[in-house]
Design a protein around this nucleic acid. Structure first.
Length: 830
RNA sequence: GGGGAAGUGGCGGAACGGUAGACGCAGCCGCCUCAAAAGCGGCCGAGGUAACCCCUCAUGAGGGUUCAAAUCCCUCCUUCCCCA
């Protein structure tokens, strides 16, 4: 019995060799066909498990295959190192966030190497390094110059547990995305990035992103939420004030029976001048009861409620007086903070009118009707024909929307307008472990940007991190500064940036990670961008992936990047990994770690199993039985190749050159050569089509081993077998890089198999000598004919009609029609 | 409430309108062995048949398009994901 495969020492040996030789280093500027493949940079949370491994294994297999197909591959890795968990560790265990983060990075880097991934580590960086976040500050100032970063007081999502403000995207079901605490509303002065200035381009360019999953694009479209309509003004009676409202249904304007405004609406002080004291007090009570409620509660969870203000507004076209109500479901931040109430034609307005006894005025009827329907049981929300709408009566909804918009415009009471659900991106965080916002507040000069020469504004060490309030605000040496304009005393902004800021451009930093002249080198960016294949979880569909597109468009507008103004040409979302059908979590204690798996099964087996278990986009299940199949595979490869090993010394020198495929004579030999080429074709097709269903490729490798076993039993000295031995390392290289490298070396090669060319499939060796032609009668299989490929239609028909079973089914008749798919099937229709 | 994806043997899956179940896991039988493990070979959707052949049924349910549907279309059911 041959010695068993010692995966542990082989895997360690090659991981060390690859690190020593910089096997996966990419050139500064690509000289030929470049391929930039990137997995979303990880947050250094501590330990990697097999769920992470699935993501990185996929990216690694893609990178290795493309490299072997002759592309110049950039495959970098870094660390999204700012963020709350480091600070929480500081609060809970008194560990310095920087220390905690650094040790996690060291551990995770070790684990990534342990997985046998081929990254260009010379490009590694962590976003918490001053050399990185200085460029965050630099980019912030560039946005600031253009008016794309601005500060304003706004009601914000406040997490009472993490004591910080959250972006809308970080509020999940009314709760904090990180800690799950209930989110409240508060008013604070905050920094925003004006992503809304790019709303139209972010939406329109989705249509060009052919390499993105449709569902991700749909999510972004919904998030941007473009709607076309009319912005119109209602005059407030007995005042000179106006209330602006946006509607997509201008055709229902004559059906307005009330106006709903947010309790925070700026018109309220004006209303108070014309209403009774009792009404004014009631409004205040109502508003204060809502102040701490989250948006979700107000718009979805709470019952629609409201209060008549005592004031009336004037419909600009019908000149009707409509009561003004404050409601809990209209939000000051959305649109104009006011909504025209049309109970007959809007579900929410209908419910509200019923509850509060407001009139329901029908102005739209279905196209085939001429008069109002009997009292409505529910709102009629469809398009139709207008009734009771002055001279717009009789028009279709679509025509009336245009006509009414024009009339409003003519009388100066409105105009056509586009509204977006997308709101500006709030980036201020009252936290320590992030990029300080490079702004000073001078007693004389006001808001002053930190000059470029003074960047980076360093994060001070030894901050008092207690979990309450802003740590930076409690460090006088940090807060107190000189005004760069007047030299007087100034105070620093004590907020840090949302960590999504740094992850919106990190893919550019890999191109020149040590650059001191700019965030990236423009020549290298021109050479490498955009990212050819981006791989990461679907949970980032509207967060990171939208912010990155926004940033990149800004960079393109500034001329800092050239070519396409989209950063990611192709996007792939991998599915996650369960353990025995359950989600992996520390609390369940069912996390399958990288270290234990490497120890027990070897990482080549782990990588093969992760790719083999399911298509990569599907959820997969880690089971102990599942991986045994891949452990067997590895051992089987080893045994088969060891059987050939004694001949190595004699053949070694010869086998160093790429061998020609020997002529196969027996069917077992043909099977081996065919399986070899089929496997190569599968790997190439799955990669270049970007389907990445390597589960099928690995099944083809199983078949190759089966064919080789059969040939070995039959003719152990066969040249075809020896040829297969010489090719197997190349085929395995993208998926099981260690054993591939070891076998390659044992064949006598001195250079890395990962820098070799992948075998090009030979179609003539894939073709079969004899194929099975299926004969159907009326779509049901009635015979299988063993024929030569390329058989003509007439011959096929003649052979089929000679089959007894076919004749029996035809009952002596001639088929009326037939359909012939060459080399596949013949369907006879009776 | 809205949007999206998916339902195939005991299990993971394969089949990109043309032979349903590749490949693996589990199971069963055999070889090897004193024995076991490992390994190697074989069987493995359901029913009919002594049996090979062959026949019938079968891709969540029901309908449709087509010479031909797991695949395309419609309705429903279930599960998962995203958004509100």
């Amino acid at each position: 019995m041959a010695e068993p495969y010692d995966f542990k020492s082989v895997e360690r040996k090659w991981q060390e060799r690859w690190a020593r030789d910089h096997t996966y280093a990419a050139p500064r500027i690509p000289s030929r066909d470049k391929y930039y493949v990137l997995e979303m940079l990880p947050y250094p949370s501590g330990d990697l498990h097999v769920g992470h491994a699935k993501n990185y294994t996929l990216g690694d297999a893609v990178a290795r295959t493309m490299r072997m197909l002759g592309r110049e591959v950039l495959h970098p890795m870094g660390w999204d190192a700012f963020g709350l968990p480091a600070e929480n560790a500081a609060i809970e265990r008194g560990i310095d966030p920087a220390t905690w983060t650094r040790s996690n990075i060291a551990n995770m880097k070790r684990q990534l190497r342990l997985m046998g991934t081929g990254y260009d580590w010379s490009r590694e960086f962590a976003t918490c390094e001053p050399e990185y976040y200085r460029w965050n500050q630099w980019l912030f100032l560039r946005l600031y110059e253009r008016g794309l970063a601005y500060k304003r007081e706004a009601p914000v999502n406040w997490c009472p547990h993490d004591q910080t403000v959250l972006a809308n995207e970080q509020v999940i079901d009314g709760c904090c995305w990180r800690c799950g605490a209930h989110v409240e509303r508060r008013n604070l002065a905050q920094w925003f990035l004006k992503i809304t200035a790019y709303a139209d381009r972010l939406l329109a360019d989705l249509d060009r992103l052919d390499g993105w999953p449709e569902r991700t694009k749909t999510m972004q479209r919904n998030w941007i939420g473009r709607s076309e309509g009319v912005e119109l003004a209602f005059g407030v009676e007995r005042t000179k004030g106006r209330i602006e409202a946006f509607t997509t249904r201008a055709d229902t304007l004559f059906g307005v029976t009330f106006l709903a405004i947010a309790p925070e609406h700026p018109v309220i002080p004006l209303l108070k001048s014309v209403i009774s004291k009792k009404h004014a007090e009631a409004i205040d009570t109502f508003a204060s009861s809502l102040r701490s409620k989250s948006e979700l509660e107000r718009t979805s969870l709470m019952e629609k409620d409201g209060l008549f203000t005592g004031a009336y507004a004037l419909n600009p076209l019908s000149h009707e007086h409509v009561p003004i109500w404050v409601t809990n479901y209209v939000l000051a931040e959305y649109g104009t903070g006011a909504v025209m109430g049309v109970p007959a034609h809007d579900e929410r307005d209908f419910d509200f009118a019923r509850k509060h006894g407001l009139p329901i005025a029908q102005v739209i009827v279905p196209l085939h009707h001429r008069e109002a329907l009997a009292p409505l049981e529910e709102a009629f929300i469809g398009d139709g024909r207008l009734i009771a709408s002055d001279d717009f009566t009789g028009m279709s909804s679509a025509r009336a929307r245009k006509a009414i918009a024009q009339r409003l415009e003519a009388i100066g009471a409105g105009h056509e307008s586009v509204n977006y659900k997308l709101r500006d991106w709030l980036i201020s965080r009252q936290r320590y472990w992030g990029t300080p916002i490079p702004i000073l507040y001078c007693e004389k000069c006001g808001e002053v940007p930190v000059p470029e020469s003074e960047l980076p504004v360093l994060l001070p060490p030894n901050a008092p991190i207690t979990g309450e309030g802003s740590p930076l605000a409690r460090i006088p040496e940090f807060v107190n500064a000189r005004c760069p304009r007047c030299g007087g005393t100034a105070k620093r902004d004590t907020d840090t940036m949302d960590t999504f800021f740094e992850s919106s451009w990190y893919y550019l930093r890999y191109l020149s990670p040590r650059d001191t002249q700019g965030p990236w080198n423009r020549d290298e960016a021109a050479g490498w961008m955009n990212v050819d294949q981006y791989i990461g979880g679907a949970e980032h569909a509207v967060l990171h992936l939208l912010y990155s597109r926004f940033f990149y468009k800004f960079f393109a507008d500034r001329g800092w990047v050239t070519g396409d103004d989209e950063p990611f040409a192709h996007l792939f979302h991998q599915g996650f990994v369960l353990h025995d059908g359950e989600k992996m979590s520390k609390s369940r204690g069912n996390v399958v770690g990288i270290d234990e798996t490497a120890e027990r099964n070897g990482v080549d087996a782990m990588r093969l199993f992760l790719l083999y278990a399911t298509p990569p986009e599907d959820t997969s299940d880690w089971t102990d039985e599942g991986i045994t199949g891949r452990v067997r595979f590895i051992n089987r490869v080893w045994r088969l190749c060891e059987a050939c090993h004694p001949e190595r010394s004699a053949e070694g020198a010869k086998s160093r050159d790429r061998q020609e495929a020997p002529a196969a004579t027996t069917s077992a030999e043909k099977s081996v050569l065919r399986a070899l080429n089929v496997a190569a074709k599968s790997a190439i097709d799955e990669t270049t089509s970007r389907r990445f269903h390597y589960n099928t490729t690995i099944a083809r490798l199983d078949e190759l081993l089966n064919a080789m076993s059969a040939l070995q039993r039959e003719a152990p000295e066969s040249h075809a077998l020896r040829y297969a031995y010489s090719m197997i390392p190349l085929l395995l290289a993208p998926f099981a890089p260690h054993i591939a490298e070891e076998l390659w070396e044992r064949l006598g090669h001195t250079s890395s198999v990962h820098l070799e060319r992948f075998p090009q499939p030979d179609e003539s060796l894939i073709a079969l000598d004899e194929i099975t032609l299926v004969v159907q009668v009326n779509g049901k299989i009635r015979a299988r004919l063993a024929v030569q490929p390329g058989l003509g239609e007439a011959e096929a028909l003649a052979l089929a009609l000679a089959e007894p079973n076919v004749r029996a089914q035809l009952e002596g008749n001639k088929p009326r029609r037939h359909f012939y798919v060459p080399d596949k099937l013949l369907n006879l229709v009776r």
